[in-house]
Design a protein around this nucleic acid. Structure first.
Lengths: 346, 346
DNA sequence: GTGAAAGCGCTAACAA
DNA sequence: TTGTTAGCGCTTTCAC
């Protein structure tokens, strides 16, 4: 009983996937040689290479990942670990861009990206997966100080953290943005415009990134010999931004410049200021943060601080790939620079 | 030369991962028996099961995925295909929830989720990956009519489409929402409230989902013996919603109810109406769509139509898993019901 | 530079 | 119910 056409159906004859052995036979060389060509070994006779390439093209050969992984003890996959609610994670444009960057870098390799959402209770399954050789390394992206199970993972496979500082206890690679400098750049812009009474609408005071932005803003004002204006919490939300703007209008009417620590808050604040009869940027200049779509949706196009989120993703992937290739001497910490996107509001 | 401690470093002694064979030895049974236990075969003596379980726990055994895949010709991985820009895709809360649902269902299995972003040019690499046995099946999520390369993939591995209708030419599984009914539910709410002059702010007229919502809205009004009010394009954006609201205020001042086809547009429109002195819901009732965070951020909490996006994701994964298990008689099309979230605005 | 041969860790007949 | 025996398709020494 020949197993050849065992499960062939009438309508769908599925050709058996070509194997390395078939390529070897077709090209008239050994399997080892084909393997060398496929993996780009330099010690192969050019003429053999040509033969093998032809056979590969002709047969449409694609190496079997499972077999390759088994033999080489490498999965050629990396995990994207999201230790958080997926919806909130992906709803954030910042993270979405990071993923885009990771993906962009990975596209140049043959690494596959596995999505691992480490939900509340199920840390155990994730652990088994990650430490069981399913992936060669992982990228961890999150707002929060990460969970402790990551510590144990970190000494099984290489980890690269992104977005925010990771664990205190472990020594892995971290890619982050310079929030302090972001706030500083925004403030500098306002100062250079000639603003004298500069306030800020901040993010929640229990978020590290928010605090750092405010620090940078304050530093520049002080350095410029200006009295820093009020700091009002806008909660990183649109409504919060509007509320904060109203408050500033009351308590700080002389305000002629304001750094709003997220574009979303700015898109809530700006209409309030306009409604109050302030011209933007003539009467009050506004600098936002994020360079999100909201920045363009504002009544007056928003000058804003851009975070290189996609580049961050690319960098994270790049580091991991490099480490996986054996170059684990990359710097442990990479702080990405921010930049100012100049539009109309300031 | 014993290979045992070949690459052990001073600081990091990595124990060799326990294999099935080691478990078998520890439990005093054959490898086949261990395999049966691991894969939940029912033809194993309970006492053997207990022995094997103990050995597994003790050794911390985790099956090697590569070996399993190679031997069983199944990857135990499925792909999430995003034929679109990642940032835009994940920025959409609707899709983010779908991914959450897919993930939730997959968590109950040992399928891994591979993220495949089929970017512009690189269809070829994706093709090779998908048809090369790297995944057992795939879930495709997108706004758009999908690309043609998916057709070729569809006859290699099972595909489940979600979000919006997929290709015309292929016969696979589709999970979608009932947009027409969504518009109808919204309109019905307005009618039942006693509104007589009901307008709608629509999405872009070149999007299928937007058109269907308007159709449902119109149908209900006509059935109720009401003259449908104006349909104004709000572009699915906040600014567009505000613009549309202003337009309605001018051209349709008698308006006492409005269906706004996305919460984002509603959050732009509502402030305009309030500013014009309209009370919500007393003077103008508003029903939104999406049940997104924006619905709660509105000045008046928004009554809105909820799409079961997470359930959709779960359903998609469920279908795929089922099909992969051999039950390919699942209905080709699953239309998920929408529901009304009742808050204050209508 | 090339080939032969021995596995990687698991599953899946088949025998017992 | 259990054990034995072949491989799955690839990489990788090791001779040549």
């Amino acid at each position: 009983m020949p197993p050849v056409d065992g499960d062939a159906e009438m309508s769908l004859v599925r050709h058996a996937a070509p194997t390395l052995e078939m390529v070897a036979a077709r090209a008239g060389v050994s399997r080892a040689t084909v393997s060398r060509v496929v993996n780009g070994s330099d010690k192969v006779n050019p003429s053999s290479v040509k033969l093998v390439q032809a056979a590969i093209d002709e047969l449409g050969y694609v190496p079997n990942r499972a077999a390759r992984s088994l033999a080489s003890a490498q999965s050629h996959a990396i995990a994207l670990i999201v230790p958080e609610d997926v919806t909130r994670f992906f709803g954030d444009v910042f993270f979405a861009s990071i993923v885009a960057g990771i993906n962009a870098r990975l596209e140049q390799t043959d690494y596959a990206l596995n999505l691992m959402v480490a939900t509340q209770s199920e840390g155990a399954k994730t652990m088994r997966y990650l430490t069981g050789g399913a992936v060669d390394g992982a990228v961890v992206v999150s707002h929060h100080t990460a969970d402790h199970f990551l510590e144990r993972i970190a000494d099984t496979i290489p980890l690269v953290f992104g977005g925010r500082p990771g664990l205190a206890g472990i020594d892995t690679w971290v890619v982050d943005v310079d929030n302090e400098e972001g706030g500083a750049v925004a403030a500098r812009r306002l100062v250079e415009r000639g603003c004298k009474h500069i306030a800020t609408i901040t993010g929640p005071t229990d978020m590290q990134s928010a605090l750092e932005r405010t620090d940078g803003w304050r530093r520049v004002l002080v350095d410029a010999g200006l009295e820093p204006g009020p700091e009002v919490d806008g909660d990183f939300s649109m409504m919060g931004g509007a509320r904060a703007a109203r408050r500033l209008l009351e308590t700080y009417p002389e305000m002629d410049g304001v750094f709003v620590a997220s574009d979303l808050m700015a898109s809530g604040a700006m209409p309030v200021l306009l409604d109050a009869g302030k011209r933007v940027p003539e009467d009050v200049a506004i600098v936002g943060y994020d360079d999100s779509p909201a920045a363009l949706a504002c009544p007056v196009p928003l000058t804003t601080v851009r975070q290189p989120s996609e580049e961050m993703g690319r960098m994270m992937a790049d580091i991991l790939i490099d480490v996986l290739a054996g170059n684990d001497d990359r710097p442990r910490s990479s702080i990405m620079p921010i930049s100012l996107v100049e539009r109309v509001s300031a």
